[in-house]
Amino acid sequence: MAASSDTASRPTALVTGASSGIGLAFAERLAADGYDLVLVARDRGRLDALAARLVADRGVRADVLVADLSDPVRRRAVEQRLADPGEAAPVDLLINNAGYATPGDFVDTPPEVLTANLEVNVGAVLALTRAALPGMQRRGAGAIVNVSSVAGFLPGRGSVYGAGKAYVTTLSQSLAGSAAQHGVRVMALCPGFTRTEFHERLGQERPGPAWLWFDADRVVDDALADLARGRVLSIPGAVYKGIYVASRIVPMGLVRKLAAATGRGRG
């Protein structure tokens, strides 16, 4: 744990997958905006270093919660922090960012790896949203951002990643209306290609031209702006908004053929 004094007036955000990529960008931006933080990931070293830096640079409180979200038992501590914080401050903003991708086709991926993928991309989002939402609704305020992907709008080629992200987007849209009646916002963030460690960890080169790639800071800026506007779906960038619109209009059979031809959807 790392902390500063005078935390009573500051809101608290919990960010999963906070040690890198979009999660790291969320943590840095929210600290700059005056949020105290609960940082969740598997890598304690990275989390401790991030917490210490945010405390020193921003003067906020930054607590570290190490958890493997692919394991329902190990993620219970995160659920507990959201549902019943005890003497700690309640979480005002939940960023469900942690994600899991695999490089191979479905039939080439071991069942246990597919299960871990499902638990992180779907199970953890469901469990943490369920843990956070009742308290937010009782307090009449709060927000949940579930990080999905443009991949959820398009059929992948032999991959479960897009299927999981489609679930996250649909879940967020399904919950948004009822949550809003209690003063709580729920939004799905659906970025396209983002400059993170994602493809490096899969051993893949970054596909597509450079103009398709956004910095994580840009994605976070757009997401928080859309959240403030009350939007249920945030798609950073005109090109990806166009892809979303096209996916609603173009016949799905043609979309599947294009996905197969380009190899989109690995991971």
Rank of each mutant, 00 (worst) to 15 (best):
S148C: 04
A131V: 10
G142E: 09
V145R: 12
G156F: 11
G156R: 10
A124L: 03
S149V: 03
T129L: 07
V147I: 14
A124V: 07
V125H: 13
V150N: 08
V125T: 09
A132T: 03
G135L: 14
F153E: 07
L154E: 11
V145G: 08
P134I: 10
G142D: 07
N146I: 11
G142K: 02
Y161D: 13
S148V: 03
G158W: 11
R130P: 00
L133I: 08
T129C: 11
T129W: 07
L128T: 04
A127Q: 05
R157A: 10
A124F: 09
G152F: 12
G156S: 14
R139A: 15
A151W: 04
S148A: 15
V145N: 06
G140Y: 04
P134N: 12
P155Y: 15
Q137I: 02
A151H: 08
V147N: 11
R139Q: 14
L128H: 09
A141V: 06
T129K: 01
A131P: 04
A124T: 06
A127I: 00
L133Y: 03
F153W: 12
S149H: 07
V145L: 08
A131Y: 01
S159E: 09
V145D: 10
R139E: 04
A131L: 04
G140L: 01
Y161L: 12
R138N: 07
S159T: 15
G152M: 14
A141C: 08
L128D: 02
A127M: 08
N146W: 04
A127H: 13
Y161E: 12
A127L: 01
V145K: 10
R130W: 06
V160K: 02
R138H: 04
G152S: 12
R138I: 13
S149D: 02
I144T: 01
A124S: 11
R157L: 13
I144G: 04
A132Q: 10
V145C: 05
N146T: 06
L126V: 15
M136R: 07
Y161A: 13
L154P: 03
V160Q: 13
V147E: 05
V145Y: 14
A127T: 07
G156A: 15
R157F: 06
G140T: 04
G135P: 09
G158S: 12
V145S: 05
G142R: 05
I144W: 02
R138G: 06
A124H: 01
L128P: 00
L133H: 09
A141L: 00
A124Y: 02
R157K: 14
R130H: 11
R157N: 12
L154G: 02
L154N: 07
R157M: 09
I144V: 15
P155D: 14
R157H: 06
R157V: 15
A124I: 00
A141R: 15
P134K: 15
R130A: 15
R139P: 05
A132S: 05
V147H: 02
P134H: 11
R157C: 05
S159Q: 13
L133G: 09
A151Q: 00
L126A: 15
G140D: 03
V150Q: 13
V150T: 13
A124D: 00
Q137Y: 03
G142M: 07
M136Q: 14
G140K: 02
L154R: 10
G152D: 10
Y161P: 01
M136L: 04
L126H: 14
Q137F: 03
G156N: 15
V147Q: 01
L128M: 12
G152Y: 08
L126C: 15
L126F: 15
A143Q: 05
A151D: 05
G135R: 13
